[in-house]
Simulated scan of single mutants.
Amino acid sequence: MATVNSPLKDETALRTTADALQGALVDLIDLSLVAKQAHWNLTGRSFRSVHLQLDEVVALARQYTDTVAERAVALGINPDGRVRTVADHTKIRQPDGGYQSDDKVIASMTDTLAQVIARFRERIKATEETDLVTQDIFINLTAGLEKQHWMFEVQTQ
């Protein structure tokens, strides 16, 4: 792994942290794109509230995309947010094309956020022994994702 004078001297710790940061970057970039796609193609009675909530998800994902990428650089790791990289490595289920009803978008975002949160919880555990600063970023981000998940989930009941 090519690094620029990383503060993490242990190669295994650096690799684990790098993998967690890169996976997070892919999740966040694609989450912002999936939420924006839903935002543009939303229809239904709850249009306005869901439309605005999707923007909150996009803003959260974009904010933390930069935070995660900059953390990687601070550790001497090259973040890779290229379209091809995201397309090849995303684990987020892609939305159907065309207009989507508010109920379908709410259910889809609830599921997508739950899956992303599960991966972030794995990253929190993975970085517990390797880099507490990265772990702290993941903890704060996960709290924001869990809030968004809750706000979508209550609309499914």
Rank of each mutant, 00 (worst) to 15 (best):
38 A>T: 02
149 H>T: 00
10 D>G: 05
100 Q>M: 14
78 N>K: 12
54 L>T: 10
113 L>F: 05
146 E>G: 07
9 K>R: 13
88 D>H: 08
65 T>K: 05
81 G>Q: 04
125 K>A: 11
123 R>Q: 09
81 G>Y: 03
69 A>E: 08
102 D>L: 02
128 E>T: 07
47 F>H: 15
156 T>S: 02
13 A>K: 15
100 Q>G: 05
137 I>Y: 07
58 V>E: 12
89 H>V: 02
105 V>W: 07
51 H>K: 03
121 R>K: 11
143 A>I: 01
31 L>W: 08
130 T>Y: 02
61 A>W: 10
153 E>Q: 10
157 Q>C: 09
150 W>C: 11
45 R>N: 11
4 V>F: 15
53 Q>I: 00
5 N>Y: 12
153 E>R: 08
25 L>Y: 03
10 D>Q: 11
97 G>M: 07
89 H>G: 11
93 R>A: 15
150 W>S: 12
138 F>W: 04
59 A>V: 12
60 L>E: 13
71 R>Y: 12
121 R>I: 03
131 D>F: 05
106 I>D: 04
6 S>L: 10
131 D>N: 08
134 T>W: 00
87 A>R: 08
106 I>P: 07
2 A>G: 03
102 D>H: 01
10 D>I: 11
40 W>Y: 10
43 T>E: 11
155 Q>K: 06
49 S>H: 01
1 M>P: 14
84 R>F: 14
95 P>H: 06
17 T>K: 03
45 R>C: 01
17 T>N: 10
112 T>K: 00
155 Q>P: 01
38 A>S: 11
117 I>H: 00
38 A>K: 08
135 Q>M: 06
113 L>C: 04
84 R>Q: 15
77 I>K: 05
80 D>C: 04
145 L>C: 04
136 D>N: 08
5 N>F: 14
56 E>P: 05
25 L>W: 01
62 R>H: 06
74 A>G: 12
2 A>Y: 10
